[in-house]
C-alpha cells in the first residue's frame, strides 16, 4: 500500500484523507486517530498527502512494478 503513515508522528488531523485526490484514505476519528490506507492500489503517487502533512508523517512506498531501470552511463559509452 503506497502511503505509509508514521503513527508516532501522526496527530490525527485527517487532512491527508480530506485532500487525497484519489480517495486512498479513510479517516474515522471514532475508530482510530490515524487515517487508514484503505485503497492503496488506487494511489497515483502524486505526493499530495506527503506535501500537505504538517507533521511529515507520511511517506510513499513505491510498489515493485514501478521500480526504475537504470544502468551506469559511463560504462556504456565505450
Amino acid at each position: 500500500m503506497p502511503p505509509v503513515i508514521d503513527t508516532e508522528k501522526c496527530i490525527g488531523c485527517g487532512l491527508c484523507a480530506e485532500i487525497c485526490p484519489m480517495m486512498v484514505f479513510r479517516h474515522k476519528p471514532e475508530e482510530s486517530d490515524t487515517p487508514q490506507v484503505l485503497y492503496g492500489d488506487e494511489c497515483w503517487h502524486c505526493n499530495a498527502c506527503v506535501l500537505d502533512c504538517s507533521q511529515g508523517a507520511i511517506r510513499l512506498r513505491l510498489p515493485l512494478p514501478y521500480m526504475i531501470l537504470n544502468t551506469d552511463a559511463a560504462n556504456l559509452k565505450g
Binding site: 526504475i68 531501470l69 537504470n70 544502468t71 551506469d72 552511463a73 559511463a74 556504456l76
Partner: peptide, 9 residues
C-alpha cells in the same frame, strides 16, 4: 540512483 550519471529506461 543519480540521474546525472545513470541512464534510465
Amino acid at each position: 540512483i543519480d540521474f546525472h550519471h545513470k541512464r534510465i529506461e
